[in-house]
Design a binder for these strands. Structure first.
Ligand SMILES: [Mn+2]
Ligand SMILES: [Mn+2]
Ligand SMILES: [Mn+2]
Ligand SMILES: [Mn+2]
Lengths: 234, 234
DNA sequence: ACGGAAGTTTAGACCGATCTAAACTTCCGT
DNA sequence: ACGGAAGTTTAGATCGGTCTAAACTTCCGT
């Protein structure tokens, strides 16, 4: 409790738009060393010049370090806020699934707007109601109140060992269509499977889930994170 | 189902601000014949000139009929949208109380922002989860999908008959402090009481609730709506 | 080493929502 | 019936967030 109070009333003008920029920069920083104007622009479906303008604003607010023509990086404060928004997002996703019967392909869009509007009080009640969860419906880790982020597996189905018993831990996809398809295959977090074959040259990957066997495009396989599963059924 | 679909994609540029203006005009129209610029300004804590500007916008969008220097009124479309937002607001209030353990004095502020952000899908799930309720935690009627509004009592505790068995049906107050006070008296919707005495000249009103007797300021009494309660305990 | 393409920033505009200050109506008391 | 106070609208400015077009920087291939 004590620790989490720290921020809260300090940053006055944090708008929903700012929160989305921070989240975006946060995510892109994990995938690439340099976060460039154009990348942010593409992700947010906004023109590069708009991004430049916003980056200046964010720099003024001490939320990012911005070096023109070079790139942006979050400051510790910016990082903290990004994590808070991500926490909101994932808690909401999980809540919608658990408490209101949404399916995992419906929740991202809802959460994308609700995340900006969740009061600390409501966040707390939802978290409590869910038993302070650590993973959302897609297996994405939920940042804790202190900014701690649970580690998750980094091995993808595209480069997992053959024949071993594997467990799906996370599905890194936001697209509703694909999520529905993945669900029909049974490739949801917690599911067990074996990798049967991997075609060469980035070709499809064949998996057995229960009694069924499926061929998966390698790009899809790369979005599915797995870990080796202990002995037998959970 | 069929009926409710009618609107939905039609009005493009309905912002949260617009929704709040429509709600305000809707409520004020029930209390007074003429809805004037200054009244709206006071309620929304905004300057009269800002209201004038917005009323023009609303008129352009065919949401209100606006006659300068005279007053505003909602068009049927404006009315419909106002009711939808009010439905959102009251469903959210009830949901927060029923599903997440909020108390009735905490929910108004939360709902004031969430109401603008509730998708139709989420609204439907919440309504279903609550069993298509007709009253929110304050006894305020929840507009139905077709715009129908359940009738509620109009008799207030300030002008109810003495000695009769009464039931609280609605508490028309948004102020958290007062709501908490009212709750400590047990004056929540559904509670039974008798009016024991009414002091002259708009003086306080004395009520018995269970074994306890309280004196209430007449202004407070006027916010509490009651109806005569049948024979004995429900 | 340098010239052009790709990436980025600047300049200037627009839109929604608000404000202050000034002008204009309405209304009411004498 | 009319003059002033109260109420309202207009004019013009500001702020956040976006855009297009033009200028500028970086980078890479020859
Ligand atoms: Mn968002
Ligand atoms: Mn997720
Ligand atoms: Mn509102
Ligand atoms: Mn209410």
């Amino acid at each position: 409790m004590a620790k989490a109070v720290a921020r809260k009333q300090l940053p006055a003008g944090i708008t929903p738009v700012i929160e989305d920029y921070l989240k975006t920069i946060y995510f892109m920083a994990q995938e690439q060393a340099q976060v460039k104007t154009t990348d942010v622009a593409k992700r947010l479906r906004v023109k590069p010049s708009s991004v430049t303008a916003m980056l200046k604003t964010l720099a003024d607010l001490k939320l990012v370090e911005y070096r023109p023509y070079y790139g942006v990086a979050l400051t510790p404060l910016g990082n903290q806020i990004a994590l808070e928004v991500i926490r909101h997002h994932r808690l909401i996703e999980l809540y919608l699934v658990k408490a209101l019967g949404f399916s995992w392909d419906e929740v991202h869009e809802e959460a994308e707007v609700l995340e900006h509007v969740l009061s600390e009080k409501l966040e707390a009640r939802i978290a409590a109601h869910l038993g302070d969860p650590t993973l959302d419906p897609h297996g994405d880790p939920i940042p804790a109140l202190d900014g701690t982020l649970p580690e998750t597996a980094t091995m993808t189905l595209a480069d997992a060992p053959l024949r071993k018993r594997l467990r799906v831990v996370r599905v890194r996809d936001q697209d509703a269509e694909r999520l529905r398809y993945i669900a029909t295959l049974g490739l949801v977090p917690g599911a067990h499977l074996r990798l049967i074959e991997r075609a060469p040259f980035e070709g499809p990957v064949t998996v057995r889930i229960g009694k069924r066997v499926h061929a998966l495009d390698s790009r899809l396989a790369r979005t599915i994170l797995v870990e080796e599963a202990p002995r037998h059924p959970s």
